[in-house]
């Protein structure tokens, strides 16, 4: 007897752990796809990844770095589809390669912010007492500063550059995640299923990592996805102020910044990377909303 893949995944009585996990993922995937806005967001993010990977192919031999001063600030044409910038570099190619920079920022910020936020939040929420008080006061200190200003200070102290920009953003972005993780942890820690593991003799670390963190993860992922637009914009802001990616790196924020002076006469220089930032931010926002619907425990039967 053969069953289709979909039937195997939707099976109510899975025969292995793998089938159960995949089935659960598949149900989540179907829920995202069934939600038009989330699907649009997902498609945009997948496109971003595809563009980043295939930038050399899509650029059709154009280099993001090659300068052609004779062709500076050229309007969109058959040769330069989206025009050129103040150094005669092809904006089409630079925008494509810029996806790589943006994706790097997104990736690096995610793997720094989520673990810090989760670690601080779950520890504070689960242990309580003075650990909670100390960790949360530190969090409050970070929260008290306006984010961009704090990131600016960090970026200025660390020196300009894309890696430092990412570190600066991450250092300012984790406190809300710690707050979320702490709130979730306090609810989870009081529940019967955590008491059960305590009674089984599990160590605190085991309880935190195997039982508490997986439950906080979904809200952290949702928040991260929703925040991603803001993070990209902060990165662009730092780039715009000259504290992010350094020339000649094709970073969208820096590109907008460069086009600022000529925005009235040569609008494309600033507009094209601006549109890219806008679309990607929108994509993350849409996906974040969709994920929130999918992960919402109230929607679970």
């Amino acid at each position: 007897m053969t069953v289709s893949l979909a039937e195997w995944l939707m099976d109510d009585r899975p025969a292995s752990r793998r089938q159960a996990v995949l089935g659960n993922l598949y149900r989540g995937m179907r829920a995202i796809i069934a939600n038009p806005a989330a699907l649009a967001g997902l498609i945009i993010i997948l496109l971003l990844v595809a563009v980043a990977i295939f930038a050399p192919v899509l650029a059709l031999g154009r280099s993001p770095f090659a300068q052609d001063l004779a062709q500076r600030l050229a309007a969109p044409s058959a040769v330069h589809w989206l025009g050129t910038d103040e150094l005669g570099r092809d904006i089409y190619a630079r925008t494509l390669y810029g996806a790589r920079v943006t994706l790097t920022i997104v990736f690096l910020v995610s793997i720094i912010v989520a673990p810090i936020g989760l670690a601080v939040g779950t520890l504070a929420g689960y242990l309580g007492g003075w650990v909670d008080r100390v960790l949360m006061r530190i969090t409050d200190v970070f929260l008290a500063f306006p984010r961009l200003v704090l990131a600016l200070a960090f970026a200025a102290a660390l020196g300009p550059g894309i890696e430092n920009a990412v570190i600066a953003i991450s250092l300012t972005a984790w406190p809300p995640y710690a707050r979320i993780a702490r709130a979730e942890t306090i609810t989870i820690a009081g529940s019967d299923f955590i008491q059960v593991v305590v009674l089984q003799g599990a160590s605190t670390l085991r309880i935190l990592f195997r039982h508490v963190v997986p439950l906080c993860l979904s809200s952290v992922i949702v928040r991260l996805t929703l925040d991603m637009a803001g993070i990209i914009l902060t990165a662009a802001g730092l780039g715009f102020l000259g504290l992010g990616a350094q020339p000649p790196t094709p970073e969208w924020g820096a590109m907008v910044s460069a086009g600022r002076e000529v925005i009235l006469d040569q609008w494309w220089v600033a507009t094209i990377p601006g549109i890219a930032i806008f679309i990607v931010s929108l994509g993350f926002n849409l996906l974040g909303d969709g994920l929130r619907d999918v992960f919402d425990p109230k929607a679970e039967r």
Binding site: R17, D192, V196, Q200, A202, R210, P297
Partner: peptide, 26 residues
């Protein structure tokens, strides 16, 4: 210990298999 509320005493993201494996692993 067996708790009162069967809806609250199982981890919502763990299969039955994982729930039973955990005490053995500990």
């Amino acid at each position: 210990f067996v708790f009162q509320d069967p809806y609250a005493s199982l981890h919502p993201r763990q299969t039955v298999d994982e729930a039973l494996r955990e005490p053995l692993a500990i």
